[in-house]
Write a protein that binds this DNA or RNA. Structure first.
Lengths: 226, 226
DNA sequence: TAGATTGTTAATCGATTAACAATC
DNA sequence: TAGATTGTTAATCGATTAACAATC
């Protein structure tokens, strides 16, 4: 029914909700699209377009009711039941993910974590039970889990993903620094920290160079004035 | 001189380099664009277009020389000097980042890490010296640091970023789950794990629903056949 | 040479931005 | 009412995809 919504729109709605929650905590009752845009870092028109998909309407000259909008966004993006999620890989990154999500969104719940390393399994870390890799298939099936977080070394990732896809997983977040091949019905979101860091370094350098250049040629004023 | 290259292109080049490095380790000497595309998950034409910005040419019917291409990508995206980077926030996520990058890319070097929590500072974690937040300005200036990784709680992030921008930082990776406001000359790459997880959960649900629907209406075959 | 892949240009696609009548 | 903001459509922009002559 909601037609096709882009992944970026969903990610932005998630961000708006966080901003709105903060606003609600500060007892702000209404917000205009341009206020939300200023906080989220976009344009007012984009915010309005994004919010439209939730079906909730603002009112002219009064903007959006914060609490009702939070409700509408939640109805739209949250699954009907809290989504059970598994984490594969309990190394440094995996443990950080556990800590990061521990008791955060009730709509998403890390149900189990897996690792090949025996010293890490059959324990409870940040409230999450850890299992050896062998029990992965069973638990996925038992608990009807459809979403997984990949936090294993790059060399292990594809093997793990193949198992997950076989077991019926439909969505993945991939923290491993390698591209994954998956069947077309599986949605993958890549979080490539290495690429992020290298990209930031590249642009920081570019900008440093162009600043230096402009400074050297005395052409600093033009771009920076407006 | 290299004109304007999009952030996505740079991120993809970073990914290609990693694939090429693996290929080189396996003594693969040449690769075609379609082989690289299959491993990176794109199209051959896109790979060719991306590689063009490095200035390195493949040759028809022989493809790209792996080692020379790695060299060309490195020349293009790596800064002339290893880029010194600071990490702000040594909580769970910060420590995971330290562990993750510890001794990885020589082109990028986490020089120092900062936190307000005294028990975490004036130590060495994963080979990186940690400092109290107060010394941030001094060290940024001393070591001419232009890139920072933000791994502090959302409530602290904007304050930290303001300090960083004042100190002349030009690029940021933001792991804090809040949008940041920065001067226009500062490049920001957001890594929003909460939004990623919620987006994956949303699409996993959508797909589960449409599978169920098609199965119910007996219309499973059509889309999946081709 | 014939076949395949290259660099590069043209066509397509999708998302963002700007504009505007409707509305409180 | 006048003013401001809304939902929504049209124009713009940029990136991706497809196509093709050049080349090994």
């Amino acid at each position: 029914m909601p037609g096709n919504v882009s992944d970026k729109t969903v990610a932005r709605l998630s961000m708006y909700r966080r901003i709105l929650n903060r606003a609600a905590a500060e007892r702000t009752e209404r917000l205009f699209s341009h206020e939300l845009a200023a906080m989220a870092g976009g344009t007012a028109a984009q915010v309005r377009r994004d919010l439209m998909v939730t079906g909730y309407s603002g009112s002219p000259n009064k903007g959006y009711a914060v609490n009702e909008l939070i409700e509408a966004i939640s109805d739209f993006i949250d699954p009907p039941e809290p989504e059970p999620v598994v984490l594969i890989g309990i190394g440094n990154l995996g443990r950080a993910i556990l800590a990061y999500f521990s008791g955060r969104r009730p709509g998403l719940l890390i149900q189990a974590a897996f690792d090949v390393e025996q010293s890490l399994t059959n324990r409870v870390i940040n409230g999450v039970r850890t299992y050896p890799m062998e029990s992965l298939g069973d638990i996925l099936e038992e608990q009807k889990i459809r979403v997984a977080i990949i936090a294993v070394p790059g060399s292990e990732a594809q093997g793990v993903v193949d198992k997950l896809a076989d077991a019926g997983v439909l969505g993945l977040i991939n923290f491993a620094p390698v591209p994954l091949r998956v069947p077309s019905h599986v949605y993958v979101e890549n979080v490539d920290m290495t690429a992020s860091l290298e990209t930031v370094a590249y642009f920081a350098n570019q900008r440093a160079a162009s600043f230096g250049e402009r400074r050297a040629t005395g052409d600093l004023s033009r771009k920076e004035e407006r």
